[in-house]
Deep mutational scan, measured.
Amino acid sequence: MDVFMKGLSKAKEGVVAAAEKTKQGVAEAAGKTKEGVLYVGSKTKEGVVHGVATVAEKTKEQVTNVGGAVVTGVTAVAQKTVEGAGSIAAATGFVKKDQLGKNEEGAPQEGILEDMPVDPDNEAYEMPSEEGYQDYEPEA
């Protein structure tokens, strides 16, 4: 019985440690998101679009440190934060509304985080759909 109880105690310690790591990862992701939003706020009209992409990228980098179902929630929060940063930029006159959601080359930025393969159960990952990809044929 002692062996059984000791095993359960060790398992509990492992769960607590994993929860603490997840909590730490979420806190880091939130900190990076805040950094990115402050970065966007300090940019001029020309830099705002690039700044919004930076927020998304920093958040995406930190999301990889967070495991399990938390990833889905962090990704949703990050996307809403990026959308909010863009709205703030438009409201303050840093950028025109028609410039939001495009990178410096004018290509749409939507789907940055949505296409990231995420499995809350950590069982399997699927690649994003290939609808947006084109076949590449090298020139002879």
Rank of each mutant, 00 (worst) to 15 (best):
A140P: 15
K96S: 10
T92N: 04
T75D: 02
S9Y: 03
E130F: 03
T54L: 15
M5N: 05
Q109L: 15
P108I: 06
G132F: 10
P108H: 12
M1H: 00
K12W: 06
Y39T: 06
M5Q: 02
G41I: 03
G14P: 02
G106F: 11
E126D: 12
G14V: 12
N65Y: 10
K102Q: 00
M5W: 10
V70D: 01
D135R: 14
M5L: 01
A107I: 09
V49T: 03
A56M: 13
Q134G: 12
V26E: 00
M127V: 14
I88N: 02
K45I: 10
H50T: 08
G73F: 04
P138F: 04
P108R: 12
P117G: 10
A29G: 03
P120F: 10
V52E: 00
T59P: 00
D121E: 11
V3A: 04
V74L: 14
E35N: 14
T81W: 03
D2H: 07
V71L: 03
K80L: 12
A124N: 01
K23Y: 05
V74T: 05
A19D: 00
L8I: 10
K6R: 08
K6S: 06
E130G: 11
V40D: 00
T81G: 04
E83H: 14
A89L: 11
G106P: 13
T64I: 10
G36T: 13
Q134D: 13
A17R: 08
T75G: 07
A17M: 12
T64C: 15
E13M: 12
E83S: 03
G93P: 09
A69S: 07
A27C: 11
V70L: 13
V16R: 06
E123C: 14
E105K: 02
Q79K: 15
F94K: 04
S129T: 11
Q62A: 08
T72R: 13
Y133A: 13
G132C: 14
A124Q: 05
Q99P: 01
N122A: 04
T22M: 14
G68E: 09
E57K: 08
G132E: 09
G84S: 14
V16F: 15
K58I: 08
G14L: 10
I112R: 06
E123K: 15
G93D: 05
E126I: 03
M5A: 04
E61Y: 04
A90H: 14
L100G: 10
G41D: 00
M127I: 08
